[in-house]
């Protein structure tokens, strides 16, 4: 199951994945290095989290070349945006209900 009983998405349990989604939610596209800088994580770590989100179809990527250097741009998918919004709403609901 992708969603737990309280409406939170399992995929967003990791802080890094939540961070990736937050950054992509407010940017049309971001390249690997920008994401790395915002999150302050290692290449390998970021790559594995990006893979996981890609597998869920929450994010997608576009490969191109800048000169000869490959440049990968990541962006949030429609499903990803929906899931992220739902997750946010669930978080707010949980905080409210616990007060």
């Amino acid at each position: 199951m992708k969603v737990s009983i309280d409406g939170l998405y399992k995929a967003f349990e990791s802080r890094i994945r939540l961070g990736i989604m937050s950054a992509l939610a407010v940017n049309d596209t971001l390249d690997f290095n920008s994401l790395k800088e915002f999150l302050g994580v290692t290449d390998g770590n970021l790559a594995s989290h990006l893979k996981a989100l890609e597998k869920e179809a929450f994010i997608s990527l576009e490969k191109s070349f800048v000169g000869r250097k490959p440049n990968t741009k990541y962006f949030i998918t429609k499903e990803g945006k929906k899931a992220f919004d739902n997750h946010l709403r669930a978080l707010e609901q949980l905080i409210k209900s616990q007060k």
Binding site: S22, V26, L39, L91, Q98
Partner: peptide
């Protein structure tokens, strides 16, 4: 949860 929301907000702003 509160920290999650705070971090989401901060990341959106920073990025």
């Amino acid at each position: 949860y509160i920290r999650d929301i705070a971090e989401i907000r901060s990341m959106m702003e920073r990025s």
